[in-house]
């Protein structure tokens, strides 16, 4: 990907060039970013066209609420390879669909073969909900009466929610997707926070952060965005805006601190989240904290801290966020600032 460059832009209108640059430039790649900047600086009309293109592209985020798109979307989803209805076309469509689904359906097949599970753990929450430290560093909260059955293998971390409700904060592991099996669906994630409730009536999957893909055997996969919920009830599947407050009501989500040093506070906060906060500065550690906090979302907690204290949060290894005094943090994004000269 990084060696690809947008084609020659000469002779194109600013809109045409902006379309190409938006689709084909990987801004994470320094060479491509430099080329984009050169084009933007060439002419104010270029920058204008590119910013407009960003707006137009972003406007499709609201597509779900825009009725005139409903019909074209239905037609687009129904479109398959070849439009004539000769029988082999149907077969081709199946192959195409199978290719499209191949990646996500693999776990189903693997489940029926002898699973080479390295590690099996069964958790049950009899009387009351339990906070679980899973073997890979993921966290889960299992609702009262629930049962969670883990099978961790070399290629996959699988958790079966036989019944009940669970919340997951999944540790990132690109080589071993985390797959939750619930209510006849597979929920595949790399690293994210989400809530699953499964009972005889149906299933609901609410995504709080990151991205998950929900697959029914034989159905199209559904990719959820944060704040969306997939609800299966009476055999019908729906994606809707999640009621996040309701999603959190069932589990313990608050802790209270009364004039505690930040070092103690983060130990408690770290119990509930994959993302670990760390401090190596005694002055930061000594900050006094009072208040009621929501657990399980340490990024949010850190965001609150950096708003109120002279602190910055800096990535510090996988799933670690270091809280530092503001001067060293400042050097992060203002390279010409005093902190840059180390």
């Amino acid at each position: 990907m990084s060696d690809r460059m947008p084609g020659d832009l000469d002779g194109l209108t600013p809109e045409q060039a902006a379309a190409r640059l938006l689709l084909e430039t990987d801004e994470a790649d320094p060479v491509q970013a430099a080329r984009l900047d050169a084009w933007l600086d060439q002419d104010p009309a270029h920058r204008q066209a590119w910013l407009d293109a960003q707006d137009v592209w972003a406007s499709f985020d609201a597509a779900d609420a825009h009725r005139p798109l409903d019909l074209p979307r239905r037609r687009a989803r129904a479109l398959r390879a070849g439009r004539s209805s000769v029988p082999w076309m149907a077969a081709a469509a199946c192959v195409a669909a199978a290719l499209a689904l191949g990646l996500v359906l693999t776990p189903w097949r693997r489940a029926t073969e002898a699973p080479a599970a390295v590690q099996r753990v069964v958790y049950e929450a009899a009387g009351q909900q339990r906070l679980l430290d899973l073997p890979d560093g993921s966290k889960a909260v299992l609702g009262a009466g629930g049962a969670l059955d883990l099978a961790y293998g070399g290629n996959e971390r699988r958790a079966r929610l036989a019944h009940g409700r669970a919340y997951f904060d999944v540790a990132h592991d690109g080589s071993r997707p985390f797959v939750v099996e619930a209510g006849g669906r597979l929920i595949t994630v790399l690293g994210t926070r989400f809530d699953v409730a499964s009972d005889a009536e149906g299933l609901s999957v609410t995504l709080l952060e990151g991205s998950v893909r929900v697959t029914a055997s034989g159905g199209d996969p559904v990719v959820l965005r944060p704040g969306q919920a997939l609800v299966v009830a009476q055999g019908r599947t729906q994606v809707r805006q999640a009621d996040e407050a309701a999603t959190e009501r069932w589990r313990e989500t608050r802790v209270v601190f009364d004039d505690k040093p930040l070092s103690e506070v983060i130990v408690e906060m770290n119990r509930y989240a994959v993302l670990q906060l760390v401090i190596d500065d005694p002055q930061v550690a000594a900050l006094r904290i009072t208040g009621q906090f929501r657990v399980g979302d340490n990024a949010r907690f850190a965001r609150g801290l950096v708003r109120l204290y002279p602190l910055r949060a800096v990535p510090d290894g996988p799933a670690r966020l270091k809280l530092v005094g503001v001067r060293s943090g400042r050097s992060l994004s203002s390279p010409d600032g005093p902190g840059a000269k180390r």
């Binding site: 006094r288 801290l305 180390r342």
Partner: peptide, 23 residues
């Protein structure tokens, strides 16, 4: 955050050199 404590001078953490490897 009901209680907000003022810190004195901003601290430069990079100076204290106690970073672990991952850090």
């Amino acid at each position: 955050l009901a209680h907000e404590q003022r810190m004195g001078e901003p601290v430069d953490v990079s100076a204290d050199g106690e970073n672990r490897h991952a850090s």
